[in-house]
Simulated assay, not measured.
Amino acid sequence: MEILDWIQNWFKDNCDGDWEQGEGIQITTLENPGWEIEIDISNTSIANITIDGILNEKSKKDWYGVKIENQRFTASGDAGKLKFLLELFREMIEKIEN
């Protein structure tokens, strides 16, 4: 399944009348340039997971970082990493749910 279809379905599956009223999913751009994704994972299957920050920096144009803390998945990466970051989130969800 295409990542945008998957994240859309994941969002719909987690909407409960309350969760989506908070921050839900935020995708923003960074000035360096790059992407940042923040996903509220409270009341989801991975709500109690914590991952210390992981940073993979090959160069100023090839990097990403990811962490889960305080019931929030946060990932950022260079301008070409949006799809990759969303796929990382999907991998985490699928590993825990399976």
Rank of each mutant, 00 (worst) to 15 (best):
K61G: 03
K95F: 08
G17K: 11
M92L: 15
I68S: 05
I41F: 08
W35N: 03
I7S: 04
K83V: 14
N14E: 09
K12A: 13
I7Y: 07
L88D: 03
D62H: 13
I27N: 01
L85S: 01
Q71H: 13
W10D: 00
A47T: 10
S59F: 10
F11E: 03
G53C: 07
E31C: 03
N98C: 09
N48G: 11
G80K: 15
V66K: 08
A79N: 12
N70A: 09
N43A: 08
N70Q: 12
E20N: 07
N9G: 07
G24M: 06
C15I: 06
K67D: 03
D40F: 06
G53D: 04
I93C: 04
G77L: 09
I54F: 09
L30S: 02
L82K: 15
A79C: 08
G80R: 13
W6E: 05
L86K: 10
G77W: 09
E38N: 11
G80I: 06
I7F: 11
T50I: 10
P33K: 15
I68D: 02
R90E: 07
I3H: 10
E57D: 01
G77D: 04
A79Y: 14
T74W: 10
S45H: 04
E36M: 14
G77P: 01
I51E: 07
N32E: 11
I93S: 05
G53E: 15
I49D: 02
Q21S: 12
T44L: 02
K67R: 13
D78I: 10
I39P: 00
I25P: 00
T44F: 03
G80A: 12
V66N: 01
E87N: 11
K60W: 07
W10M: 03
W63A: 08
P33A: 12
